[in-house]
Structure formats: structure tokens, C-alpha cells
Design a protein around this nucleic acid. Structure first.
Lengths: 223, 223
DNA sequence: ATACGCTTGTGATATAAATCACGGCCGGCG
DNA sequence: CGCCGGCCGTGATTTATATCACAAGCGTAT
């Protein structure tokens, strides 16, 4: 059974650790469900309880966790706070990360004002655009800079993540510039299959792809 | 190697046809790449060329296509127009689909004005919100209706797809109402693992999940 | 005509991922 | 203080997915 999970791409075969990337992609889900249980005053949870809320099997959760250590107690389950903290540490969510946005059109502006990044420790600290009419203008709290400033700003502001919100035909070029500037993680909203070196990760956000495969099932549904 | 692909969920084990859902989820990618080749005046393409642009192996593409028929010619490859048309037909993209939006906050408004759905045949034809202050107001070209109107509007406007853009704590409730109204495909922007019956598909859009797994690699990167 | 280079379609094979199933510990209870 | 219900951690197994590799067909060139 498929499970809620983002789509992450890299260049040709590349896994730093020996932990399957499909496991890494599930960890944030566990963090999120643990936050739910924490909010509901649970002290301990079993793999069964976690699995229930994610529609997966308890065994898979236990196996996933076992890649990183032994966090549970037999007969008792997992300490909610402890496991959440461990997973956050493993994922690097115990610190904050700076990102830059490329493309401040309609979509880019929506991304800048999206309130979901901040509380998770992601901060958009720079914005770039190719359109000279936009450069210098204020978007949110940010001044829009030209693409040429990417390398300098990335270095100066310790930006590790690039968010791409430009039209499809410009996306690959922008991604190349980000990679050249040392960016190794890209959140890509453009509808393209980006080509990147093996040590760069790309997470694609593409609502249309989701819709386009669901219509297959709608068309063939009985009832 | 992971590939650009949306995350689709259902209720407990449910596959209408015997075509693996991972294959279905790749078909829209093929459609998109074919559109690219069509735009560049190619008449024929090989599985190798398609694979190159998607960073996958030619064999996988051929095998995926073989679930649905024989569309190629040995020694020549695939006719771009023909294959694109076949895949669109298989996916049900040769018609248009009506969707409704639930939640017309900041995110919902961005979705309504997102220009990427229309050209692919997806039309947002109704908008709902729980906030009585918003009901009756105009958003885009749509009047905002109360949640109670969902069943009637879904039937009357032949809405097959629900787009959920409400805060996490209300998302499951909204999804339940959509399912009750007969919706079988949901595009979910809320950060939850929705619980739905087996015959309902959910495509999740969640930029934070993508970021949260990339930080693992950033943290552990060498160079 | 026939030979050749190219590329499909697909069984067979290899790899990856998920699940099973059980030994072992935990803590509570009698 | 020993027994018991519960649940973890994990090797073994099953299932799913991807790749290989090759016979067969197409079109061109000679």
C-alpha cells in the first residue's frame, strides 16, 4: 500500500548512507504523528498506534527505526518525546535551515507567504528573479535580487536550500545556477524532471502529476 | 534511483486493475516528456531518448508501456503524437475534469489562481469554506459556498475531484464530507495522512515533508 | 533481394522493499 | 519472586519492482 511520501530525486545512483532513501522519506511522517500524540498528552506509543494513524504496518515502523538504534521498550512501546527528539536529530530538524527562493511571480509570492515553513525551522532569507522590473522590489520582507547575486548571497547567508518557482522553460537553467553556487537540496515547483549531479537532492512539488494519475482510476472506477 | 513521481494513497490495499500503481504514476511523466519532444518537432522517439530526459532506464519505459499495448516499431521507436494520444486516453486526459476547492484561505486562493490546472483539463468549478464571513464572497470567478452545499454542488456540477486546502485539524472532517458526497479523488494540501475508504485516492502535496527528508542528506553530506 | 543496424516487447533474473514470526525483555500482579 | 500479557528488534521469507538480455520486426542501403 502506497503511503504519503514526498518524491525525492537525485542524479545517478547515489545514497550517502546505507539507509534506504524510502526510509528517510518516512521519518518526517513519524515526527509528525509523534507531534500529534505529544499534543494529546501521550507519554508512550506502540508501533501499532503509530502505524494506525499512518495506515502502515507496525513491523515497517519498527524496522525503519531499527536502522538508527533501539528507541523502544519491550512491553511498553516508545517514549513519545524521546523518539520525536531522536528522529528530529537524525533528520537534522533540531536546527534551522536557510533557503532562497528563485522566481517571485504569483507562485513564488505564495511560497514566501506560506506559513508552514517557519515553524519547522525553514527560513526563506533571499529571493531572486530574472525579471529586471522586479529586482529591487519588496516581496514579503525580502528585497528581490538578480540571479547573478545567487553565489554571493548563498555564501554570505549560509543558504543550503533552493526553492525553484520559475516557468518550466527556465527551471533547468536556474537549477544549474543553484548547484553551481553550492546548493545541494532543491525544492522544485517547476513541472520538469531536473537533471542534477548525484550529490544533489531534488524534491518535486507538482499537483498536476497527482491529478493526472488519479484520473486513470476515476475513469476506470466502478462506483 | 528514485524518480519524480507524486505520492498517491488509498485506503487498505486497493488496485482496480492489475497494473501496478507505480506504473500509473509514471504515465503522466511520459505524457509530459512526449509533449516536450512534440514541441521540438520530433516525429519519432526511442525509449532511450525518453529515458534520458527522465533519468530512468529505457527498459522500464518499455515495460511500463507494455502493460497497455504495443505502441512502438522495432528499429524506429515510438511515434510521438500517437503515443502521447494513447497515454492521454489511457489516463483519461482526453476529456476535462471538474474539481471543487475546500478552503479559500491564502493557500486556497493561490490554488484557484494557479494557471497550471486549466491547460491540462482540470477546472475548479466550485469553492467551499467553513468560515461564514467568507461565504457569498467572490474568489476568482467563483462564489464561496458553505460546506453544507458540497453534496448538491458535487452532483449538479459533475465534480469528481476535491481539493483540500484547510488547516490540518479540519482536513479529515472535510475529506469525510467529500467522500460522503461521492468524491473519489482528492488532492490534499493539508499535512495529514488522510484516512479514506479503499476506493478513494488521495494525492498529497506537502512541501515540508520534502524539505524535512532532504535535511538528512544535507546534514550528512561530504562536500 | 538480402544483409545490417537499430529498437521494440517480454520472459527470465536480480534487486529492493515489505511483511512475517518469534526470541527476548519489560513491568505489573499475585 | 516467578509468571504473564504485551510489544520491541530483527533474521528469514515473501512480495513488489526494476533490470537484463535476446528473439523478432522494421526500414534502409547495397
Amino acid at each position: 500500500m502506497a503511503i504519503l511520501r514526498p518524491s525525492i530525486t537525485t542524479g545517478p545512483d547515489h545514497n550517502i548512507s546505507d539507509v534506504p532513501s524510502v526510509v528517510i522519506q518516512r521519518l518526517p511522517l513519524y515526527v509528525r504523528v509523534l507531534a500529534y500524540f505529544e499534543g494529546n498528552e501521550y507519554e508512550m506509543v506502540s508501533s501499532e498506534q503509530l502505524a494506525g494513524r499512518l495506515q502502515m504496518t507496525p513491523a515497517q515502523i519498527r524496522k525503519d527505526l531499527s536502522y538508527f538504534g533501539k528507541f523502544g521498550k519491550q512491553g511498553r512501546g516508545y517514549n513519545v518525546k524521546r523518539l520525536a527528539a531522536e528522529l528530529r536529530r537524525i533528520l537534522g530538524l533540531d536546527r534551522s535551515w536557510n533557503a532562497c527562493l528563485v522566481g517571485v511571480g504569483r507562485l513564488g509570492r505564495a511560497i514566501i507567504s506560506y506559513p508552514g515553513f517557519q515553524p519547522e525551522g525553514f527560513r526563506v532569507v533571499a529571493a531572486f528573479d530574472a525579471d529586471s522590473a522586479l529586482i529591487g522590489s519588496e516581496v514579503g520582507e525580502l528585497k528581490v535580487d538578480p540571479l547573478g547575486d545567487i553565489p554571493v548571497k548563498v555564501r554570505r547567508l549560509n543558504i543550503r536550500i533552493g526553492i525553484v518557482a520559475v516557468p518550466a522553460q527556465h527551471a533547468q537553467g536556474v537549477i544549474d545556477r543553484l548547484v553551481d553556487a553550492g546548493i545541494r537540496a532543491i525544492l522544485n515547483y517547476a513541472p520538469i524532471a531536473a537533471q542534477v549531479p548525484p550529490n544533489v537532492r531534488v524534491a518535486n512539488i507538482d499537483p498536476v502529476l497527482g491529478l493526472q494519475s488519479m484520473t486513470y482510476y476515476l475513469k476506470n472506477a466502478r462506483g
